[in-house]
Amino acid sequence: MSISPYLAGLRKHVGHELLMVPSVSGVVEDGDGRVLLERRADNGLWNLPSGALDPGEQPATALVREVYEETGLHVRVTRLAGVASHFTRYPNGDRCQYVNVWFHCRPERGTARVNDEESVAVQWFAVGELPDLHPYVRRRIDTALADGPAAWFVQPGEDFPELSVSDVS
């Protein structure tokens, strides 16, 4: 997976130590109620379009950029769907705690396709026919598609195993 010049610079200073990283992901829903997923190049798993914020960038702007970079699709952010932190440990030893803000989005123009080296496939899925997904990916989809304007978040004292340390392999 590509790493931004900003994060690469931080890694030069801290090595594999834990970094807190603001990130975004998008549940892109088309007019037929299908959800856009991408198959990651690094581990072959299906995931939502996502990525880290660049310095000075607002979360919704970062999401629009990331969806386009990864899928070639221009989207309109319709609402904030949730926020949570989760831990990731990469095969090279890098450790991150991502603070992820996810949004519900609608496609505006373009055709979904593999648009960079981060994914090997991009596909629309009916909600009832989603592939095997990490529980955290499924939680983001479910909360983004739920009725109501309120965003999902972890209540104080709650614990969700899918937000614990997970290895990217």
Rank of each mutant, 00 (worst) to 15 (best):
P91K: 13
N115E: 14
A112E: 12
V127Y: 11
Y98W: 12
Q97L: 15
N115R: 10
T88K: 15
P59T: 08
D54A: 13
N100R: 12
V127C: 02
E70G: 04
A62Y: 04
S119K: 04
R106T: 14
A84T: 13
V83K: 11
A81D: 06
A81L: 03
R76L: 14
E70K: 15
L53W: 04
R65V: 02
P59N: 08
R89L: 13
D116H: 10
T71M: 09
E118F: 00
E57Q: 01
Y98M: 01
L53H: 02
V120L: 06
A126N: 02
V67H: 07
W102I: 01
E66P: 03
P55A: 11
R109Q: 12
P91V: 11
T78D: 15
G56D: 06
Q58W: 08
V77A: 00
D94S: 09
A81Q: 04
H74S: 14
S85G: 14
T111K: 10
Q123Y: 00
N100K: 09
A112Q: 08
E69C: 06
T111L: 09
N100C: 12
V83Q: 14
E69W: 09
A112K: 09
A112F: 03
Q58L: 13
R76G: 09
H86V: 08
Y98V: 00
V75P: 03
A62N: 00
H74I: 14
P59W: 07
A121T: 05
R95A: 12
Y90P: 02
E118Q: 11
S119F: 05
T61F: 11
V75E: 00
T111E: 15
E117Y: 05
S119M: 06
G56A: 06
D54T: 01
G82N: 04
D94T: 08
V127A: 13
A62V: 01
E118A: 06
P55K: 10
G56N: 05
A62T: 00
L53Q: 02
R76E: 15
Q97A: 14
R79F: 07
Y90T: 05
A121Q: 14
E118I: 00
L73K: 06
A121L: 13
R79P: 02
G82I: 03
G72P: 08
R79I: 10
R65Y: 01
V114S: 04
T78I: 11
Y98N: 05
L73D: 03
Q97K: 14
F103E: 04
G93W: 05
P55H: 10
G72R: 09
W124H: 08
W102K: 02
V99A: 03
V99R: 04
R106E: 15
T71D: 04
G93A: 07
P59V: 10
N115I: 07
G72M: 02
T78N: 12
N92L: 07
Y68W: 15
V120W: 03
D116E: 09
E57Y: 00
A121W: 06
D94C: 06
F125N: 00
W102E: 03
V75Q: 04
H104C: 05
V77P: 00
P59Q: 11
Y90R: 09
Q58S: 11
C96F: 14
Y98R: 02
G56H: 09
P91G: 10
V67S: 05
A60H: 01
L63G: 02
Y90K: 10
P59Y: 07
L63H: 06
N100E: 15
